[in-house]
């Protein structure tokens, strides 16, 4: 967890001004975490990605996904390209079913 903590710390430093701006000076409000609230038998509550998270995902896609897809289309076999595209959707774009 320690690496995780500072990884997030770094990103939070970069995003801190934006977070503060979006919060408009208000104190952060606690929101229930659907993962922790889950109980057996209850359907998992799908999460709505926040604006910030969507922005980050879009950024990642724009910077990495495009380059990778272009490179893969040129280099790899069609089967690998499909796997790659699927992997991008699973890891960045979509929720796990």
């Amino acid at each position: 967890m320690a690496c995780c903590a500072f990884a997030i710390y770094l990103v939070s430093l970069v995003l801190w001004p934006l977070r503060r701006m979006l919060r408009l000076g208000r104190e952060p409000q606690w929101q229930a975490d659907p993962a922790v609230e889950w109980r057996p038998g209850a359907p998992a509550t799908p999460r709505r990605p926040s604006v910030l998270r969507r922005a980050l995902q879009t950024l990642l896609l724009a910077l990495g996904g495009t380059a990778v897809l272009a490179g893969t289309a040129a280099v790899a076999a069609p089967q690998q390209a499909r796997s790659l595209e699927s992997a991008i959707h699973a890891s960045i774009c979509g929720e796990l079913p």
Binding site: M1, A7, I8, V36, R39, A44, R47, R53, S91
Partner: peptide, 13 residues
């Protein structure tokens, strides 16, 4: 099934 697990991204913590 991954109910009760946090699912945000698969890169970082």
């Amino acid at each position: 099934s991954f109910d009760g697990f946090t699912i945000i991204d698969q890169f970082q913590p």
